[in-house]
């Protein structure tokens, strides 16, 4: 019994001694998309974001818990997210942008560069191209 008490005490002291660190996660370098004057392509530049790292398609797939299904073709995915989750008048307020990058939607968080790409696509009118 005494052994357990000592172990418990050591564990508590160990965990408390690790407190009071004030570390920051180093922010990633965001590359602002430069498409040479062309609009961002939904099928070629936006669609890959959904499946990259299985961040979105982990749930948003056929038989998955999330709707819409991001594993379908670009045309089908486009019609299911525009205009339902996209607000071209307030791109930063678009549900798809908030859910993808804020980290508040089921721990999903796309990279800063991907988020910038998504935002620019919405700002350009969320075209189906």
């Amino acid at each position: 019994m005494k052994k357990y008490k000592i172990f418990f005490l050591v564990a508590v002291i160990g965990l408390l001694a690790s407190a009071c660190k004030y570390d920051y996660i180093v922010p990633e370098t965001v590359v602002i998309p430069d498409n040479g004057g062309n609009p961002i392509s939904f099928s070629e530049q936006i669609m890959p974001i959904f499946s990259n790292g299985d961040q979105c398609t982990k749930c948003h797939k056929q038989g998955g818990f999330g709707t819409p299904d991001f594993t379908k073709s670009a045309a089908v995915v486009y019609s299911s997210i525009v205009p339902a989750y996209v607000d071209t008048t307030n791109p930063e307020g678009s549900t798809i942008y908030i859910n993808a990058h804020s980290g508040s939607h089921n721990n999903a968080k796309v990279s800063g560069t991907e988020a910038a790409l998504l935002l620019q696509w919405i700002t350009e009118g969320a075209q189906n191209n």
Binding site: L15, S18, A19, K21, Y22, D23, Y24, I25, V26, P27, E28, N107, K109, S111, G112
Partner: peptide
Amino acid sequence: GYSNDSVQVGYTGSVGEIKFPDRL
């Protein structure tokens, strides 16, 4: 799962890897 695998100590401190105490 973290947005970056490096951490910096304080606002302008040295940069290192994520270690166990960072998880607490």
